[in-house]
Write a protein that binds this DNA or RNA. Structure first.
Lengths: 210, 210
DNA sequence: CCCTCAAGTCATCGATCGATGACTTATCTG
DNA sequence: CAGATAAGTCATCGATCGATGACTTGAGGG
């Protein structure tokens, strides 16, 4: 049983055929790219420095020269990536559908086919990952979602909707539930709309204190 | 940074003060109990056989004598446990609330404070875990939830509700979202009811084909 | 052309992990 | 009490991992 797959090549392992042979920045970038894929697919514990270096075709010691430690490689691979995952813009009421689209149908092939935040859950054993996850989820997504709601518990309702999106992603990828895995976007959209309506819509559930 | 905590004692490490000193079945049971806690809290990769044996106060070699391998210990620790997690019974319409109660408020101290299915996600790197998770989720929970719905996509809607519950559990424990973590059951119940109504209720969302 | 400096490599260390087999000791029975 | 059987221990192996420091090689400038 191959606990650690070896077939992660095919992306960033060749020197672009016209560039310099020994290019520090290019090698760094290739290491980060392969590390991103490995960490997303196999998690922090399941990825070894030798794996990443092997993908790039470089000596493992070079990773420590460039990033100090495995943890440094992980941190940099995670930070340099998420600047490229902006929140969807446009009308506020389209946010749920756009978030679902981003979660499910965007091309996350650089992250083993999953949204970076979901892929990061595979590395939850790493100390900094939970903090980074919580900060990114709260500051980024939940803040925008809370603007959809009104009332005193709008933040809680935003978190509940985030929980729904997160659960969909996990059931599709980590668990592999049958119907959700093969569902298309148009299969999910009406139910998503209904849930968004139930949480943020004009007919909130009877609050127990009003 | 203690990647591996050592303070997991306090539960099953003493021989009950009146029983036999060398009791195979009792030692086996204590090993399984401590293994359950370790695997739930630290995941499969983050738990070593030496850890579990140390919790019980026994030599690591004994684990292999009893369970053959670390994977065998994991499998048995997971199977012997879930027979004790029955589906809630009673009227069908109370199922969502009861599932939420089981997920959030039941005492799962033997599983690091989380529902076993959520704790098992920490060991998703182990090969058999995903299969066992999918099977247990589908055969157990989703089947019962699907009876709540009507229409051709009732199974999909059941999975969506399961995704919601799963996401709530993960946000509460693994991510640690602020409002959801401190929410009480009565805080969550109205929103849960609203979502269950949106997915299973008498006013289904406008199906795109009818 | 060759010298230099940086990019990249090699050899290796120390720790940890799963696993094995020979050994020791406690408990039960006659 | 003595012997047998099973519960538990000890010593150790081979593999892997993160990490370090000395070494080699390639590219660019004088």
């Amino acid at each position: 049983m191959p606990e650690r797959s070896e077939a992660a090549e095919g992306a960033a392992e060749r020197p672009a055929a016209g560039a310099r042979k020994r290019d520090r920045e290019a090698t760094r970038a290739r290491l980060l790219e392969c590390a991103r894929l490995r960490f997303a697919r196999d998690g922090y514990d399941g990825t070894s420095v030798r794996d990443v270096a092997g993908d790039v075709g470089v000596d493992p010691a070079l990773v420590f020269r460039y990033f100090g430690s495995k943890s440094g490689l992980f941190t940099e691979a995670m930070t340099t990536s998420h600047e490229a995952v902006p929140l969807p813009d446009g009308p506020l009421e389209d946010l749920p559908a756009k978030l679902m689209h981003q979660l499910v149908f965007q091309d996350w092939s650089e992250y083993a086919g999953e949204h970076p935040l979901i892929a990061m859950l595979r590395s939850a054993s790493h100390e900094d990952t939970r903090d980074r996850l919580r900060q990114q989820v709260c500051d980024g997504y939940l803040g925008a979602l809370a603007e959809l709601a009104q009332g005193n518990d709008k933040a809680l309702r935003a978190e509940l909707f985030g929980a729904f999106l997160l659960g969909v992603g996990i059931l599709r990828t980590a668990v592999g539930t049958p119907h959700l895995t093969v569902a298309t976007e148009s299969d999910l959209t009406p139910h998503l709309t209904a849930i968004a309506q139930a949480l943020f819509g004009p007919t909130p559930p009877p609050a127990p204190s009003a």
